[in-house]
Amino acid sequence: MNRYERRPISMGEAEVQYLDGDLRIIRPGAFVRCAVTGVSIALEDLRYWNVDLQEAYASPEAKLQRLQPLSKS
């Protein structure tokens, strides 16, 4: 493999550590799952997550749905 070729990426689910404004790939993969809907989210499309809960969300609506029960307590 020369240095301009990309390494093959695992097509499975990635393990990610969600940080403030960034994320760290623990185990390479192509996607993560939304904690609310269960749909797969390509890593390059991942925009919404919760650092405290370490969860990913497919959309802002999914994140709000997840946080609704938490805010009513």
Score class of each variant (00 low, 15 high):
1 M>N: 07
1 M>F: 08
1 M>P: 05
3 R>V: 14
6 R>F: 12
6 R>G: 07
7 R>L: 14
8 P>V: 11
9 I>F: 07
9 I>Y: 07
9 I>P: 02
9 I>T: 15
10 S>F: 10
10 S>L: 09
10 S>N: 12
10 S>D: 14
11 M>A: 11
11 M>N: 09
11 M>P: 15
12 G>V: 07
12 G>A: 09
13 E>R: 14
14 A>H: 03
14 A>Y: 04
14 A>F: 05
14 A>M: 07
14 A>C: 08
15 E>Q: 14
15 E>W: 08
15 E>R: 14
15 E>H: 11
15 E>N: 12
17 Q>N: 10
18 Y>D: 04
18 Y>I: 09
18 Y>C: 05
19 L>N: 14
20 D>G: 03
20 D>K: 07
20 D>N: 07
20 D>Y: 06
21 G>R: 00
21 G>C: 00
21 G>W: 00
22 D>L: 08
22 D>H: 05
23 L>A: 06
24 R>L: 15
25 I>S: 05
26 I>S: 05
26 I>C: 06
27 R>L: 15
27 R>A: 11
29 G>R: 04
30 A>L: 07
32 V>L: 05
32 V>A: 03
32 V>W: 01
33 R>P: 04
35 A>D: 04
35 A>Q: 02
36 V>W: 07
36 V>Y: 07
37 T>E: 10
38 G>N: 07
38 G>I: 06
39 V>D: 12
40 S>I: 13
40 S>K: 11
41 I>K: 00
42 A>Y: 05
42 A>L: 08
43 L>H: 02
44 E>D: 09
46 L>V: 03
51 V>G: 08
51 V>S: 10
52 D>S: 10
52 D>W: 06
52 D>G: 06
52 D>T: 10
53 L>K: 13
53 L>H: 14
53 L>P: 01
54 Q>M: 06
54 Q>V: 05
54 Q>Y: 07
54 Q>E: 10
55 E>V: 14
55 E>A: 15
56 A>R: 01
57 Y>K: 02
57 Y>W: 08
58 A>Y: 01
58 A>Q: 02
59 S>I: 00
59 S>P: 03
59 S>T: 04
61 E>R: 10
62 A>L: 03
62 A>F: 02
63 K>R: 14
63 K>T: 00
64 L>S: 14
64 L>N: 13
64 L>F: 13
65 Q>K: 12
66 R>T: 06
66 R>P: 00
66 R>G: 03
66 R>S: 09
68 Q>H: 08
68 Q>V: 15
69 P>Q: 02
69 P>G: 04
70 L>F: 12
71 S>D: 12
71 S>C: 07
71 S>A: 12
71 S>M: 09
72 K>G: 13
72 K>W: 15
73 S>L: 12
